[in-house]
């Protein structure tokens, strides 16, 4: 939880770096507690991925979101119309089109869901493999350095 005293307003105003730091800590805790994994967040971050690539912890979290997002909801949804003019007629027309197309699109979408699932599993597998390889290499480097130190002494 964030510390309330952070938001005390002093003569110098608010220490924004402290506020941001505290928010970042709070978010990290919430991510660990599983509050954020959400397919919607995975989609919202699609334009931010280039920036997030340098944030290791976030990429782990993003993979979690992606796992949730891989299977999209292909069931019927509420049809809306944002133009108020002729809205009821346009909604009715859209419903008819939806009913005509759903027979064909359902098969397409379910196949897409399978592909999404396979892709996420593949990326996940590669990620785990790379993490394991890096851990093995780190352990080997540490062992070699220890052996070198032992030889020196």
């Amino acid at each position: 939880m964030m510390n309330d005293s952070l938001f005390q307003i002093g003569a110098e105003g608010i220490d924004t770096a402290r506020v941001v730091g505290e928010i970042q800590k709070s978010v990290e805790e919430k991510i660990r507690d599983g509050i954020y994994p959400d397919p919607e967040i995975a989609r919202a971050e699609r334009h931010n991925l280039k920036n997030l690539q340098t944030q290791d912890a976030f990429m782990d979290y993003y993979m979690n979101c992606l796992r949730q997002a891989a299977y999209i909801d292909i069931n019927a949804f509420e049809i809306r119309e944002r133009r108020s003019f002729f809205a009821p007629a346009l909604i009715a027309l859209k419903k008819v089109i939806w009913k005509l197309l759903v027979f064909y699109t359902y098969r397409l979408w379910s196949q897409q869901n399978q592909v999404n699932g396979l892709l996420v599993a593949a990326v996940d597998g590669m990620d785990r493999k790379n993490v394991r390889k890096i851990q093995e290499l780190e352990a080997r480097v540490a062992a070699l350095e220890a052996a070198k130190d032992a030889n020196r002494s």
Partner: peptide, 12 residues
């Protein structure tokens, strides 16, 4: 300025 906050990701 102390006039704004900065976010790295959606949760922030």
């Amino acid at each position: 300025s102390g006039g704004g906050l900065w976010f790295r990701s959606y949760p922030e």
